[in-house]
């Protein structure tokens, strides 16, 4: 955004700022053909691709949701009230994420840092809930290898969990960078891009929560 437009560099001389070039995407880049940031465009393109990944996993679960191999189905042991709470936690982490970006954009580094940490913590709570859910399922006889339904369930939610975990690592990296004083208005695009990823992981869960958990299997 601001990043792209700082200079129309395609025909200017190199102005390499030794202090923060490299990390600072936004700085001194040349105007792109569309005027859009390369990195942000790349993230959106990547998210488009991710739709096909999660779509495949979700379809696999839907196809197999009732194929229990004569054993307990995952759907039989869903704990909807519990999952509702953890879904709500993840949903609210999207709010804290967007507030973090908003604070960084306004130059309020400390507020931004706090919201980043809050987002990571909410994400961690969600992951903790997922670990609890998995162990509870295994205790009730629904393991990864029990049936096509259970394999599909653990694979889908596991993939989502890994995405959340990667998001937490990115958020904590941002947090550390902010503590070191290297997160400011000029490079807020990094926060925005991590945010895009985070919100995407959230909307995937919005989908999963409804389609996998709430809609009853016949």
């Amino acid at each position: 955004m601001s990043a792209e437009t700082a200079t129309a560099g395609s025909v200017t001389t190199s102005t390499v700022d030794a202090d923060n070039h490299g990390e600072d995407h936004g700085h001194a880049s040349h105007a792109t053909s569309t005027g859009l940031s390369n990195t942000k465009l790349a993230m959106w393109v990547f998210l488009g691709s991710e739709c096909l990944l999660f779509g495949g996993l979700i379809s696999t679960y839907l196809l197999y949701s009732t194929r229990g191999n004569g054993r307990t189905l995952p759907a039989d042991v869903f704990d909807i009230p519990f999952t509702s709470v953890s879904s709500f936690v993840l949903l609210m982490s999207s709010l804290t994420m967007v507030l973090a970006l908003s604070a960084v954009n306004r130059g309020e580094a400390e507020a931004g840092r706090a919201w980043l940490l809050a987002t990571a913590l909410l994400g961690a709570v969600f992951l903790g809930g997922q670990v609890y859910e998995f162990t509870a399922f295994v205790r009730e006889g629904v393991g990864f290898t029990t049936s096509p339904a259970s394999s599909a369930f653990f694979t889908l939610t596991g993939f989502h969990g890994v995405h959340v975990a990667i998001g937490i690592v990115m958020l904590m990296s941002l947090f550390i960078r902010s503590v070191n004083g290297n997160l400011n208005q000029r490079n807020s695009e990094t926060v925005e891009i991590v945010g895009l990823y985070w919100h995407f992981v959230d909307i995937v869960w919005i989908f999963i929560f409804t389609v996998i958990y709430l809609i009853p299997v016949n």
Binding site: G9, T13, E23, V169, S173
Partner: peptide
């Protein structure tokens, strides 16, 4: 000049 902005891979760009 053409300043490139390699996409720092997720975990690390920060």
């Amino acid at each position: 000049i053409v300043e490139k902005q390699p996409l720092e891979l997720g975990t690390a760009d920060t």
